[in-house]
Nucleic acid binder design. Structure first.
Ligand SMILES: [Mn+2]
Ligand SMILES: [Mn+2]
Ligand SMILES: [Zn+2]
Ligand SMILES: [Zn+2]
Lengths: 143, 143
DNA sequence: AATATAAATGCAATATAATTGCATTTATAT
DNA sequence: ATATAAATGCAATTATATTGCATTTATATT
């Protein structure tokens, strides 16, 4: 996924700062989601913790990133599909959280529909599968 | 849901202490899940924070409670179905997180099946719907 | 190119959440 | 009644997140 930070910032009327560019670059490096603590470890020397929190929040608000919470309550971030906006995120895919390497994958699998009980109106549905990812499964076979 | 703390503790070979009984009583009061901060607010005078954490952890390990993380990374707890064990939780139901009152409901709706990509093996799947719950929907109508 | 100004950043302080080590208390088996 | 292994409480520490405010920076205007 090749991204253009300068263009993304322009599209969302956000000021172009080196901190904001760095965050986007870092998240775009890998296809799997990256956690806030990992980002802080990688960028902590260049960007203040507080600034990082603020950038992640505004990117989420604007529909540039989506946030996936893992079972430890840690925030993980992945680039949104280009059709997301501040008004509406539609990353209607499920996530896969590997219990071996802890990586979170955005899968190209739609969130399956569930019928809500009478009186309950669902706006969004999150689905996360837990298990062993492709890489970790291969690693086991090799031994 | 009428529960018998003494019996539950016996079944799982856990020592019977007043703190453990109180936690089970408190969680069983309501059908909706209760968060760690709420529990701490209610029990903080009777039970030390650390003890509460330890009790919640052991109850989860034993399959007495299941933990549902909300979008803020806050842990919420609900009584498990009687068929859960330390080896295997099978609360194969979806959850509903009301964005108005923040309550988390265990719905009597099965987790829908999703086909994983080649190489990925899912062990468990979590599904949480976000929206307006029955009570909050009714409250809106009345105005 | 210089300047104005609104926004973003960095830092200190604070708040909240969770964990660890250890002394004391308690449950329960004998 | 006693022994002992487990659970609890407390203090200290670590991790995570937020707020207020002074300083710096991006960008629109002259
Ligand atoms: Mn995703
Ligand atoms: Mn449940
Ligand atoms: Zn993996
Ligand atoms: Zn509600």
């Amino acid at each position: 996924m090749k991204i253009d930070p300068t263009n993304i910032l322009k599209e969302h009327a956000l000021k172009h700062t080196k901190q904001r560019v760095r965050v986007l670059e870092e998240i775009a490096l890998d296809t799997v989601a990256i956690s806030q603590p990992e980002l802080e470890k990688k960028l902590g020397k260049e960007i203040d913790r507080v600034t990082l929190y603020r950038i992640l929040n505004i990117y989420e608000d604007k529909g540039i990133l989506h946030r996936i919470m893992d079972m430890n309550g840690t925030a993980n971030y992945a680039i949104c599909s280009s059709s997301c906006s501040a008004e509406h995120h539609h990353d209607e895919h499920i996530h896969f959280n590997c219990t071996t390497c802890n990586k979170i994958y955005c899968l190209d699998v739609a969130v399956p529909h569930s019928t809500m009980p009478k009186g309950f109106t669902a706006k969004t549905v999150n689905t996360t599968a837990y298990g062993i990812c492709e890489k970790c499964n291969l690693a086991v076979k090799k031994n």
